[in-house]
Design a protein around this nucleic acid. Sequence first.
DNA 1: AATGCATTTTTGTGATCACAAATCCCACGA
DNA 2: TCGTGGGATTTGTGATCACAAAAATGCATT
Lengths: 252, 252
Amino acid sequence: MPRTATTLDAADTSLRQQVYASLREALTSGRFAPGQKVTFRYVAGVLGVSLTPVREAMRRLVAEGAFEMNPNRSVRVPLMTRDKVLELRDIRMELEGLAAAKAALAATRSQIAGIRHAAREIIVARNRGDGATDRQKVREFHFAVYAAAGQPTLLRLIEGLWLQTGPYMNLLYPDFISSSRGPAGRQRLIEALQAGDAATARREMENDIRRALSYVAGLADENGNIAPAIPVTAGKRRRPSASAAVFELQVN
Amino acid sequence: MPRTATTLDAADTSLRQQVYASLREALTSGRFAPGQKVTFRYVAGVLGVSLTPVREAMRRLVAEGAFEMNPNRSVRVPLMTRDKVLELRDIRMELEGLAAAKAALAATRSQIAGIRHAAREIIVARNRGDGATDRQKVREFHFAVYAAAGQPTLLRLIEGLWLQTGPYMNLLYPDFISSSRGPAGRQRLIEALQAGDAATARREMENDIRRALSYVAGLADENGNIAPAIPVTAGKRRRPSASAAVFELQVN
DNA sequence: AATGCATTTTTGTGATCACAAATCCCACGA
DNA sequence: TCGTGGGATTTGTGATCACAAAAATGCATT
């Protein structure tokens, strides 16, 4: 089942939570153009709710770094730069490396089975050339490892970091992926988890993140800016449908 | 000057920001009892504002882990446990160690001078037996190092972690402090920063955090719970004064 | 005195309104 | 052609209201 949220938000049915989830989904799947201004009233209109839950959801995303706020109090999708990618790379290597190490010490047999299953699904999607499923499964694989670490605060921090890098992971496809030694690394990671070898698990995780984000950093132009991966759903007009509303990709 | 906020919130004069700052200050100085229920209307009453800015400030603090929310939608101050302290210890060692390493590569001469100054002020406060100033200066010392790393996202993450451990750092006084080798460690850290020795800077920072938080974890009772350091300001009734309002310490 | 139940009060949620600051837009002049 | 100024519009902010869920309270019964 394709759950995107991983924290224990459990049964929060509040509108605010739904708005938060919608915006999060729209951000990670790249339905907002970086630099795009996103107004409260626009989001409220698209989702068919009032300003109140939108404000709270968007403020939270600002606090998490998924949106940023100009001094002149307007909310924008952050632009990605080489420096920011490199900063996120180093932070993620630390935290996700730590999570992998903890997972090696704490993972149960069934958790390891789940991780192994996700790894196989990556291969399947990749052999089919299905990039979207591939990315989804990569996410599931990683978070299966992090969940096995059993550290809730750590998990929440990592989710926040994925929210910031998410829109740019499309850039890994297809060039980086095809030349990648990802499957072998994941295999070594799984074996380390099973053997309880924390140091190896950490090293494999760090290597995976280093290679991917270093590649993305290399895509920066001469000003250090990184263009986002443009999704396919531009143009089409949609009317505000309550829950599963979709955002336009408008470049201003 | 005793600034507590460290991020570039610059000139955000919004009520929401003021409420956020007030609550943050109240939390870090331990004016709320862990487990205490904190209602929106109570905070709004104490600070003399409407619910709107209070809601947004408190939701942000919930997202940051400084408050937690029951499934029955009521906001409480989180209880600290041994497991949580140990998790925070390991995360902080990674991130603050990384920041120290980056600072060793990036700090300017004037930044190092500022760090050295803060270290001296710790000694002064400690010799006077002034615990409150001591803690404040320790905070300034650490964040002077982290600021020198020049990594804004990393800085923001570290601030969030300090917000969670903050109320419990009082527990280090006076026993841990007197038996501590802190000053010598800080001296070695400063020398590593000056020499551009990232590995040593990281190691010293990691050791500092490991020792402090391991000590706090050792204070847990048989159930794994850790009692907060109770501040001195209990009891007295106060009326809502607009900006510098103080919160009661009410234990329910 | 303890317990079960109904009523009252408290409390979070979402919508709406008023207002000021920021932004936009277009005519006007150099 | 390119600013430039000022009025109209947009947009974030904070207050207030209505409502439903949750918690507290009171009361009767055993």
